[in-house]
């Protein structure tokens, strides 16, 4: 190969790759509405993205895996933690996560930006929209959907005896983990002290009250910040079975 043929190959190859790349890019842009549900891209969501940029949240967090590696991935934080937690947390991160500044000393933590209520609304709208982007199931998370848990909880109801009890406890534990109750409650020492410690809660409280609270937290305390998870009766029973073991 001579220098000239090497050069020509370089120019032709580059041109060809560019053309293919631009063509694919145009096609990808045409699929964006479908992959990102842009019909839900409201003004609030756009405003949320601006708030996200204004405070340089990406300087600590990753979002869909890009950014900084100092703080948790937030693509799915809406479905992991829910809006009630987000609202409480963004208002006062250290209090929600660690309880007190003393408890947080020496640990990695988020600064308090003293965000106005409106910016928090926008951020939550942004997270809610981002949560639904079709990212081919990234980040990888355990595949235990509510529907699945409900279905099997119902099946468990049909089985009797100790084996069934064990299964119920396991399912309850899985649900409690999936819904991240420890974002607000301590369970056996881990978790945040926003709400009361759940260890031994069924010994402190009447099971009927726990049941009521899980069905609709506001029915017990109208100002409750605990989210309504929309649990089915079967789900509530397995959670209670688990809470009883604590």
């Amino acid at each position: 190969m001579t220098k000239n043929s090497a050069r020509n190959l370089f120019f032709i190859g580059t041109f060809a790759c560019m053309v293919i790349f631009f063509a694919l890019s145009i096609h990808t842009m045409s699929t964006i509405p479908e992959f990102t549900h842009s019909e839900n891209l409201t003004d609030d969501v756009v405003a949320g993205k601006k708030v996200w940029e204004k405070y340089d949240c990406i300087g600590c967090h990753t979002l869909i895996g890009e950014g900084s590696y100092y703080a948790p991935e937030l693509k799915d934080v809406y479905s992991r933690k829910g809006p009630a937690f987000l609202r409480a947390f963004l208002k006062d991160p250290v209090k929600i996560w660690y309880g007190t500044a003393e408890a947080a000393a020496g640990w990695r933590k988020m600064p308090n930006f003293h965000l106005p209520e409106e910016e928090i609304d926008h951020l939550i709208a942004f997270f809610e929209w981002g949560d639904k982007i079709d990212t081919h199931n990234w980040p990888p998370r355990p595949q235990k959907g509510v529907a699945q848990a409900t279905g099997s909880a119902a099946t468990v109801g049909a089985i009797t005896g100790e084996a069934a009890m064990d299964l119920q406890v396991q399912q309850g534990e899985a649900l409690v983990q999936e819904k991240a109750c420890t974002a607000c409650h301590k369970i056996k020492g881990t978790g945040a002290p926003v709400g009361p410690d759940l260890t031994g809660v069924t010994k402190r409280l009447d099971v009927e009250i726990v049941r009521k609270r899980l069905r609709d937290p506001k029915s017990v305390n109208p100002d409750s910040i605990m989210p309504n998870f929309g649990f089915s009766d079967a789900e509530i029973e397995v959670i209670i079975a688990y809470l009883k073991t604590l």
């Binding site: 190859g13 580059t14 990808t28 990102t36 895996g65 890009e66 079709d134 990212t135």
Partner: peptide, 21 residues
């Protein structure tokens, strides 16, 4: 030549999980 041949379309290694085909 190898740089551009691999690198331009190689951009795709950042397009796996961001909401694209």
């Amino acid at each position: 030549g190898i740089t551009f041949f691999s690198g331009i379309l190689g951009t795709g290694h950042h397009y796996y999980w961001e909401g694209y085909p």
